[in-house]
Structures are given as C-alpha cells and as structure tokens.
Nucleic acid binder design. Sequence first.
DNA 1: TGGGATTCCCTAACATCGTTAGGGTAACCG
DNA 2: CGGTTACCCTAACGATGTTAGGGAATCCCA
Lengths: 207, 207
Amino acid sequence: MGSAPAREGPLSRTELFDRALAIADAEGLEALSMRRLAREAGVEAASLYHHLPNKSALLDGMVVRMRSEMRLPDPIPEDWRELLRAIFLEYRRVLAAHPNLMSLAGRRVESDPDSGLVYLIRQGFEPEDAVELWQSLLAFTVGFSVFSSAYAEGDVSDLPADLAARMSEWRDDTCRRTLDAIIRTYDAGRVRREPRSRPAGPSKPRE
Amino acid sequence: MGSAPAREGPLSRTELFDRALAIADAEGLEALSMRRLAREAGVEAASLYHHLPNKSALLDGMVVRMRSEMRLPDPIPEDWRELLRAIFLEYRRVLAAHPNLMSLAGRRVESDPDSGLVYLIRQGFEPEDAVELWQSLLAFTVGFSVFSSAYAEGDVSDLPADLAARMSEWRDDTCRRTLDAIIRTYDAGRVRREPRSRPAGPSKPRE
DNA sequence: TGGGATTCCCTAACATCGTTAGGGTAACCG
DNA sequence: CGGTTACCCTAACGATGTTAGGGAATCCCA
C-alpha cells in the first residue's frame, strides 16, 4: 500500500486524515494505529503529535473528511422534500462507501451539516418542527446505514430461513421509502407559516 | 465498588457479563479491560479465557444481557400499532439506561428479538412489508438513541444559539412522534392479506 | 477404589497500543 | 548574527488482548 518512506515537505493534518481514511477503508479501523499511520506517512509515531493532540482528533478529522465527500445534485432540487431526500440518501451513500467507519457514524463533531436546518425554516417550517424532522432523518439514516453495513454480522436467530435471509438485507428501497414516510408525515403535520409551492393534498392536522 | 477478592465457586459467563456491564455503566467502555474485569471477579486475567474465547464475545454477551432488560406491558396491547410503539420505546429506554454501551448498539448478535416479526405477519402483513417496517423502526430507534446519548457531544456548529441548543436535545416526544409516523405510513401503505380491526382509511397501494 | 482425564485457576510472557519526555537540526525572523 | 520556532527523532512508560505452560482439585469410569 503506497507509502513513500522518504518525505520532502512536512506533513499536514489533511494528509494525515487522508492516509488514515485509506488505511481504515482498506483494512478496518483496528488496523489504524498511530505507528501504522506514521509509517505510512514516512515518519515516526511521536511526530504525529505535533499535528494532532491525540488519536481521537484523528478520528474526528476522518469523520469530517468523510462527510466532505457528500455531493448534491447540481441544480439543487426546487422541491424541498426532494432536496431532503437527496441530502440523506447521499449521506447514506457516503456512509456506505466507508463501512469500516460505521462505528464512528454517531460521533458528533464540530460543524455538522445543519445549514439545511435554516433552509427548512426558510421554507416555512416552525423551528421546532424543522429540528424534529432533521433529527429524525439523521437518526434514521445513520441507524439504517449502521445496520446495513456488515458491522458485526451475526446470525439472525431462529426465524424461518427466508425471513432470516430477507432480514439481513438492508435495501436502498427501504431506506428511501421510510425517509419519504418521515418527510411526508412531518410535511402534513407541521404548523405552516407561509404557504408554499405545490398542492400537496389536504393537509390533515397532526394527531 | 463491590468485588469480593476471594472466590468460592467457579465463575459463570453470566456473572462475567453482569460484572462487565456494571463496570461499563459506571466508568465507561474504555475502563472495561480483561484485567479489570478479572480483578473485579476475584480472578486473574488469563482465567477469563476459560469462559470466553475473546473480548468480543464479552461485548456480545453484554449486549444480550442489556437487551434482556426489556419489559413489555403485562397485558400486551391488543392493537399491534400500540404494541410496536411499546416495543421500540422500551428498547430506547433500555439503550438510554446504558449510554456507555451506545457504541455497541449497532452490533448484531445472535437471537435478535425478531419474534415480533412473525407477529406482524400474523397480523396480516406481507412479509416484505413486515421486514421493512421492522428494519425501519429498529434503525430509527437505535440511531436516535445513539444521538441522544452524550456519546461524543460536540459543538453544534454555527447556528443561531437557540436552534443550536434545541438541536442538541433529543426528546422522547420526537422519538415517539417519528415512530408513529413510520408505523402509520407502513400501515396505510401495506398490501393487506386478511382484513383486520379498524377502518384505517382507504389503503392506497404503495408507489 | 484407583487413576486418568477434565476443570479451573495460576504465573509469565509476547507483541502492540497511545502517549510523553527530551534532544537534535534546519529554517525563519528580528 | 542570534534566538525562536517548526519539525522530526530515539527511548521509554504503562496498559492492553492474548497465549503458553503448569499445577491443583475434582469428576468419571474401570
């Protein structure tokens, strides 16, 4: 695995994050040690501590680095429901692309991408509703991604064999279907401030 | 912290799981080492390996032990929607009671409590729908619990202060509200096999 | 009843881990 | 020119999971 044992310039934090991510992707999180990362970077382990306070900061950086891989469709969808779906399906895609990082998925880290939140509010959501919707989508997406990664794939108990098999598949369809369910329900149940865009059916009041 | 340094009988796996859970609850997962557990059990570290193949098996056992704390209301709710809600709210309660185990919450382990699945099917769910509903509820519940635990509570970026504050609260209301949203949507959208119980509105076919 | 096998614990040790202390060299800046 | 900083080094500390090998007690069967 490419590691030039002779360096020229000094290291940078982002280089370390990249290399760490590569190691974890290729061989799992438990293969990522400070010594291993140092070797890969052509440096001794102790030198890393001039760039990082500790290993936890390294993991944080990897999570941020991973999230930065999110890409949204170029003409951003006009309909906010579609946008939300795009955001969280994309989040799932990125998480699924790094299954070895799944155990870090719940790790909260500075500058979460919640600028989408203010967008929701600008779309006429009451802040309370917007927060609940955002939290729900985030929780579901992360949870679903964790389960769909092979992260400790145990046997599925003593169900009828076909059910057991189906139960260990975590399909994109299911994820999308439930994301839609959450979005639509919160759309229908929210307190409107400024009416907006399309018909959207009779908004039956919540409860 | 109760640890009788002198043993009489031999250890049992369940005793080890109990003690391990106690340690993790009290001082966090990183305080739980094989040596520490051994000391707590009045035994030397190597002896543990006569009862457990490795530490991973210990963690598995702790997860099972934790799940066994789930209790359902004694007269089991007749309405299956209410039952589902009870099951997953209870799961959340148990998870929240062991915040230090949150990073293990995604760990799949033998004999998951999916006997509820066959119950759903017996209630007239198509197996496909039942699996998707179960997976969705499970994913959301675990995800929400992970986020609501303080598991690495970072700053909440640069939102307006009130929003940021609200965003780091993960309320039971929200959990229940979204669980209901998922349950209701799958109820309305499912393919019925034997008609059952209440009116429930026109079942518009999925997609 | 005797004796081998099994159960259960021990002491020691291995490699590896995150992290810190302290020193050296080169570059930069006044 | 001289001091400070940036960056890397070697060496070591304490702790981790795990294995090897041995010893005592207990059980089971001839």
